[in-house]
Amino acid sequence: MKYFYLFFFCMLASISFQSCENETENTNSIPLEYYEELNISYGNDSNQTFDLYLPANRTPATKTLILVHGGGWSSGDKADMDAIKNLIQQDLPNLAVANTNYRLADANNPPYPMQIDDITSVINYLKNNKDTYTISDSFGFIGISAGGHLALLWSYAFDTNNNINMVCSIVGPTNLTDPAYLNNNSVELQAMLDLYGVTTDISFLEEVSPLHRVTASAPPTILFYGGQDPLIPATQGTNLRDKLIDLNVTNQFTLYPTGGHGWVGIELLDTWLNLKAFTQNQL
């Protein structure tokens, strides 16, 4: 995933953003100023924190993009998404951004339902404090790799109040019952999948797979995958795309034939331009 972060960083090297300003009282004559709050705690674990960035001139109708980092469910940090956060602030300046950490999985702490519960806690925190922050209870997701999987799964199976207006997965797993996974011979890939259980039955794998949880009420979805990805077979994207079409769910799908688990240059610029336009239309 370093290609994504490096490219976004390079795109933003010449851009500076104003530093954190104090929150001011919202009145009819004094617009709200830009505000950021870092490492907001939503639980007792040190990884249960998120950063919140609120645009100037926001209103109770302001929507929030929630960023979910990758790392195979067992590593990664919200700092990995900072460059994407900066792009959002530059090109989508009317949106709030919540950049999230979540508890990381290990041999004693499987990712499910732990990480889904963490996303639920973040969303509940934002909803419960929407008046304090002057934002709405409408959200979108951008997730990369494992973060894409979590964003899709939460949006499809756990958004009981229909708060999610759009979801983006960049190289996120969608189907843990894919034969390309069940019959793989990759040590690295299998170590990642084993976090969900070495002898897990098919019904559980379906439970944690966005492909098997998506319904006709799913939010608009935009997907990006690489044709040469050693960790995420192209079928993870194409099969979900096909099911979204069958369910008549608004969706957009891009496959970069020579892309791996990340891409650079014109293809990555294409990713951002398409994602920006989709967000503007759907969120």
Rank of each mutant, 00 (worst) to 15 (best):
T221L: 08
T235C: 02
P219R: 13
N129L: 00
P113H: 09
N162V: 01
D45P: 00
L153R: 01
V68T: 14
S41T: 10
L205C: 01
I170D: 05
S136D: 09
N99C: 07
T132P: 07
A234N: 13
V198I: 12
Q236H: 06
D82V: 05
L240K: 02
F158G: 15
S19N: 11
V122P: 05
D270N: 07
Q115P: 04
E33S: 10
N124A: 10
N44P: 03
V171R: 06
S155A: 14
P60I: 09
N129K: 02
Y3V: 08
I222L: 03
P233E: 02
L54M: 12
F253H: 08
K2G: 08
A96W: 01
W272Q: 02
N239V: 00
A218C: 04
A180Y: 13
S217I: 14
I232L: 03
I30P: 01
G197F: 00
I30G: 00
P230Y: 09
A151V: 13
N26A: 15
S75F: 05
C20V: 14
L104N: 09
M11V: 12
L92Y: 12
D131W: 09
D246V: 04
L176H: 12
T160S: 13
Q190S: 14
T62W: 03
N94D: 03
I40L: 01
L273I: 10
C20S: 02
A61S: 15
A105I: 07
A98E: 10
R241H: 13
P233G: 00
V208G: 13
Q236W: 03
H69G: 10
Y102S: 00
A105M: 08
Y5C: 11
Q89K: 09
E188G: 01
D82F: 07
L189G: 05
Y112N: 04
R213E: 11
I84D: 02
M166F: 15
V97Y: 05
A277W: 07
N99H: 00
N163A: 06
Q18D: 05
M1W: 00
N101L: 03
N124P: 03
R213F: 00
R241E: 07
P219I: 09
I116Q: 05
I135E: 09
Q228T: 14
T258K: 07
I202C: 01
N47Y: 05
Y156M: 10
L182Q: 04
E206T: 02
P55W: 02
G143M: 11
N44C: 07
K78Y: 05
L211R: 08
Y133F: 05
F50P: 03
F139E: 13
Q252E: 12
Q282W: 03
T200G: 11
M11K: 10
